[in-house]
């Protein structure tokens, strides 16, 4: 469970997050959406402790301020993924493994993406898509209870995208809490449960996707959201 209580953050006077109150319950699959600069990445980074926010932010009922152990429970797939030049994929895997106390690995997606076969290649020589696969594989590697994925399908081909989505559904069914951002709503509208809509740092809407569709009388999330924003205004 991730709980936001009165979370605010501003960067040099501009409010990136404005009084967010939100509870992501265990085992839920949440889709985080919002226009550019609406605070999506700040919200994600605040969970990971990358930005320091005002208010109470707790993961599994523990305030995360000044702690880092809780991050053992989180798998994170950042939007842009890079490692120092000249390191091979295997070396990167070895490095990240040494940084977590968890020693049981979920390597399913590693094999499905056939990353084991490019282990000796340098990351810098890989294509953007292949890099993204390594990125995703690391997020799942430690079998974490919470998965946070920032634009996970960006740069992936259809097949890999589907492998990733199937993996996400499977993990969700196993009881993992999932938070995903995507600007392509169709990617996740059928598999996500909740929608979080941010606009200008404020929580505009939070609830079941199902409910939002019903409320707006639409079948597609994209249109439903457009309508919802209009209705609110």
């Amino acid at each position: 469970m991730i709980k936001f209580e009165n979370i605010s953050k501003s960067f040099s006077g501009l409010k990136a997050l404005d009084d967010i109150n939100l509870i992501l319950k265990p085992k839920t699959f949440n889709l985080l959406v919002g226009p550019n600069a609406s605070g999506k990445s700040t919200l994600i980074k605040s969970i990971l402790g990358l930005v320091n926010v005002n208010g109470n932010l707790s993961v599994e009922n523990k305030n995360i301020r000044n702690t880092f152990e809780y991050r053992n429970k989180i798998g994170y797939m950042p939007q842009s993924f890079s490692f120092p030049a000249n390191l091979t994929v295997n070396e990167i895997l070895e490095l990240v493994k040494s940084l977590r106390s968890n020693k049981i690995y979920d390597e399913e997606i590693l094999y499905k993406f056939q990353i084991d076969k490019i282990g000796s290649k340098k990351l810098i020589n890989l294509s953007g898509g292949t890099k993204q696969k390594v990125n995703a594989a690391i997020a799942f590697l430690f079998d974490p209870e919470i998965l946070i994925l920032d634009e996970p399908t960006a740069g992936l081909d259809m097949i890999s995208s589907n492998i990733l989505k199937e993996k996400l559904i499977g993990e969700n069914q196993k009881g993992k809490t999932i938070l995903v951002t995507s600007h392509v709503f169709s990617e996740f509208e059928s598999i996500a449960e909740n929608i979080i809509l941010l606009s200008e740092g404020k929580l505009n809407h939070f609830g079941l996707i199902k409910d939002l569709l019903n409320l707006t009388n639409e079948t597609k999330l994209e249109k439903a959201l457009a309508k919802w924003i209009k209705m609110k205004n």
Partner: peptide
């Protein structure tokens, strides 16, 4: 290497 640094920071390391 700022992306790498951010990524490493998301790990449970002080």
């Amino acid at each position: 290497n700022i992306d790498y640094i951010i990524f490493i920071l998301s790990f449970p390391v002080k």
